[in-house]
Write a protein that binds this DNA or RNA. Sequence first.
DNA 1: GATCTTTGCAAGTAATCACTTGCATTTTAC
DNA 2: GTAAAATGCAAGTGATTACTTGCAAAGATC
Lengths: 188, 188
Amino acid sequence: MAKQIDDADVFTTTVDVLLANGYAGATTKLIAEAAGINEVTLFRKYGSKAQLVTAALLHERAALEGEKPTEYTGDLAADLLGMVRTYAEAAHRQSGLMMLILSEVARYPELQEAMQVPFMLVSRFGQIVAQYQKEGRLQPGEPLLVVGALLGPVIVNTMLRSAETGLPIPPIDLPVHIERFLHGYAIR
Amino acid sequence: MAKQIDDADVFTTTVDVLLANGYAGATTKLIAEAAGINEVTLFRKYGSKAQLVTAALLHERAALEGEKPTEYTGDLAADLLGMVRTYAEAAHRQSGLMMLILSEVARYPELQEAMQVPFMLVSRFGQIVAQYQKEGRLQPGEPLLVVGALLGPVIVNTMLRSAETGLPIPPIDLPVHIERFLHGYAIR
DNA sequence: GATCTTTGCAAGTAATCACTTGCATTTTAC
DNA sequence: GTAAAATGCAAGTGATTACTTGCAAAGATC
């Protein structure tokens, strides 16, 4: 019956359903059920499925923006580990969002506005890397490529481990990964 | 009208449509149009959409298996570059397939049989890495994690560049990437 | 050439989906 | 307490999809 519906709850639930089912599989019926509200309410409040999904993904971005930002501290190893940990802590959702965006959202023009949601962390890390490069402590080159070398293995590891691929791949050992990364990219 | 239809052509086209549209978006109508055949023929020859898609993905795997395998040569840097090049040459299709499998095929139980298609290269590379580790030329540890460190940045780079992410990310410089990787993981 | 097989065309079925409408109930605001 | 707003329920619409059926034409085989 009539009750107050928390938009944030609906948005979070919407993203959950998207991650589990993809855009086509995230039917408005499924989303409504998962959110514990009536399907017609979704259309009354949000207009259309695309508008709901866009709003939900933008809400996800707002939540990311509200988090404590990863800051440059001057301690290279600690910053790298912090970056990778920030990513790893949100890895399941972040990897899922990244895949959702890259493979599905890109296919639906009506979701265009939500395209940039999962890449803000990457941008921010690029700025931190650039700072260390400026100080001559990391190899020169495109900062985003360096971020790729840092995060790529983590991203792919998370993706592969989240599906039944038949690959016996263990979780990544973050301190070891950072140590190897430092051997490769740090300037001593 | 009646003509000979090449299964291989249909399968390749099917995968093309899957990569462009995803599973839900790859309607049998679209696939038939793209293959230049009648939609009803798809059901006559392959039974159902799921069976067609599974057959197409398995055909993709057979094509991969038929390719010249990347072999251990004893020249570490050349092998690493060869591995990364093998992946990069097929990158657009491989990354697309990987994303398709991880994010979509995993959601449809009827496609279960096709799950392992894009991961054969990864397995093979793991074996080569293990060989170099045995010889004490690469850092010890889980070979697949080392492959992740080698391929992860390439995979993610390809994924990010294939979509409109707003990130100004350039293509990866493979020789530089190998050089940095060697600094990080090779034992001199 | 005759027969069988294959494929195309057209029409159709049942199910599902995003979305709408009408009515009733509950909640909120004044 | 009253009126307005919000939400639920049920039924429904139009479009789309995977898939089927019937007929005819073309290709392959003997």
